[in-house]
Simulated scan of single mutants.
Amino acid sequence: MENTPKLAVLIDADNAQAAIIDGLLAEIAKYGTANAKRIYGDWTQPQLRSWKEILLQHSIQPIQQFGYTRGKNSTDSALIIDAMDLLYTGKFDGFCLVSSDSDFTKLAARIREAGLVVYGFGEKKTPEPFVAACDKFIFTEVLQVEDEKDEKTTARRKKSTNQLKQDTKLINLIRNAVDAASDESGWAHLAPVGSYMSKASAEFDPRNYGYNKLGELISATKLFDMEERKIGDGQSKAIYVRDKRK
């Protein structure tokens, strides 16, 4: 437990949907412990009612920020100031910024400059600069689908083999990762392949294509050989992948 990364979770209530909360917290738990959970908005406004109903249940601290000027979002400034205050305490290993607003691009870059990891969470409409400024960016649409646990919905979201093959960016990303992690025979352990892909593309996530696992996604492209090997005492297995062109 002592080695579990300590995370500060900061939510922009004006640019995030309350429906994602269960999936969001479950996803954050994969990366560390949410030692601080704060959400920012003008709680006098009726549009935040859905958030108000779940804050106590999930122990999220609401931060009141009045809109001083019509048309101006003062919530962003409050979140950024708090983020810098938390950064300077030196008590956290990373930040989770929940918003689809590009105004947090500089904040994410500044936190990374300090040597901390930044996880971004936002809708697919999130501007590319904010996505790229994070170490990893998770689109909240996949969190809502997971929370629904609707197998038919998940099946409809799966990209077909032809659709995957036509996605040049994805195929090149996989091929580059396999090449970087492969041995002389061209085979690469799936784990470092996934690590390379995450570092090369902040927004990469198999769930964006309708697949829960990286191995399932790569196999669905039909462009790579997949092999399961026994390791160690034979009780454990590892998946290896190779570009069929090799």
Results as ranks from 00 to 15, higher is better:
residue 13 A to Y: 14
residue 13 A to H: 06
residue 14 D to T: 00
residue 22 D to V: 06
residue 25 L to A: 02
residue 28 I to F: 07
residue 28 I to D: 12
residue 31 Y to R: 13
residue 31 Y to T: 12
residue 32 G to H: 04
residue 32 G to S: 00
residue 33 T to Y: 14
residue 33 T to S: 14
residue 39 I to F: 01
residue 44 T to N: 11
residue 59 S to G: 04
residue 62 P to I: 05
residue 64 Q to S: 12
residue 70 R to L: 01
residue 73 N to C: 03
residue 74 S to E: 15
residue 75 T to N: 15
residue 79 L to S: 00
residue 80 I to V: 10
residue 83 A to C: 09
residue 83 A to E: 15
residue 84 M to E: 08
residue 86 L to G: 00
residue 87 L to M: 10
residue 87 L to R: 09
residue 89 T to V: 06
residue 89 T to P: 10
residue 91 K to R: 13
residue 93 D to P: 15
residue 93 D to H: 15
residue 93 D to A: 08
residue 98 V to T: 06
residue 105 T to K: 08
residue 107 L to S: 06
residue 110 R to F: 01
residue 110 R to W: 14
residue 110 R to Q: 09
residue 111 I to W: 13
residue 114 A to R: 06
residue 116 L to F: 08
residue 120 G to M: 04
residue 120 G to S: 10
residue 121 F to D: 09
residue 121 F to K: 03
residue 122 G to D: 14
residue 123 E to M: 00
residue 128 E to N: 13
residue 131 V to H: 02
residue 134 C to R: 02
residue 135 D to V: 10
residue 136 K to Y: 07
residue 142 V to A: 05
residue 142 V to F: 02
residue 143 L to D: 12
residue 144 Q to V: 08
residue 146 E to M: 13
residue 146 E to P: 14
residue 148 E to Q: 11
residue 150 D to W: 04
residue 152 K to P: 03
residue 156 R to G: 01
residue 165 K to M: 12
residue 167 D to Q: 07
residue 169 K to D: 15
residue 176 N to E: 15
residue 178 V to A: 01
residue 179 D to E: 13
residue 181 A to T: 03
residue 184 E to H: 09
residue 184 E to D: 15
residue 186 G to T: 07
residue 187 W to N: 03
residue 190 L to H: 04
residue 193 V to P: 11
residue 196 Y to K: 03
residue 200 A to G: 03
residue 200 A to F: 07
residue 203 E to V: 00
residue 207 R to E: 11
residue 212 N to H: 14
residue 216 E to R: 08
residue 216 E to M: 14
residue 217 L to R: 00
residue 217 L to V: 00
residue 219 S to M: 06
residue 222 K to S: 13
residue 223 L to C: 15
residue 228 E to A: 00
residue 230 K to I: 06
residue 233 D to W: 00
residue 240 Y to E: 02
residue 243 D to A: 11
residue 244 K to M: 12
